[in-house]
Amino acid sequence: MRDSLKQRFIAGCDEKTEKKGDNVGLSFYAFFKNKNDDPELLMEAATWWIKTHKLDHFEKAVKIKQLILNDM
Rank of each mutant, 00 (worst) to 15 (best):
K6G: 02
K63Y: 14
E44N: 11
K20L: 13
K63L: 14
D3T: 06
D3I: 04
K51T: 14
N36M: 10
Y29I: 04
H57M: 12
H53D: 11
K6H: 02
E44W: 06
I10A: 01
R8P: 00
D3V: 02
K54H: 15
K19V: 04
L69V: 12
Q7N: 06
F32W: 13
K16E: 03
E40N: 08
F28I: 14
N34H: 08
D3P: 00
V62T: 13
D38T: 13
G12C: 02
I68D: 04
K35S: 11
V62W: 06
K63V: 15
L55D: 12
H53Q: 14
S27L: 00
E40V: 13
K60C: 02
G12E: 03
T52D: 15
A11P: 00
N36H: 12
I64E: 04
I50R: 14
E15A: 02
F58Q: 09
L5D: 05
D37L: 09
K65F: 05
W49A: 12
L42P: 01
V24T: 07
S27Y: 00
G25H: 07
F28D: 05
I68L: 07
M72A: 03
E40D: 12
K6N: 02
S27I: 01
K54R: 15
I10R: 00
W48C: 08
L5P: 00
N34C: 04
N70Y: 05
K6C: 07
F58V: 11
A61F: 05
I10C: 00
R8L: 10
K63S: 09
N23Y: 03
K65W: 01
K33Y: 06
D22G: 08
T52I: 14
H57F: 13
I68H: 02
V24C: 02
F32L: 12
D56N: 15
P39M: 10
K16R: 08
Y29M: 07
Q7L: 05
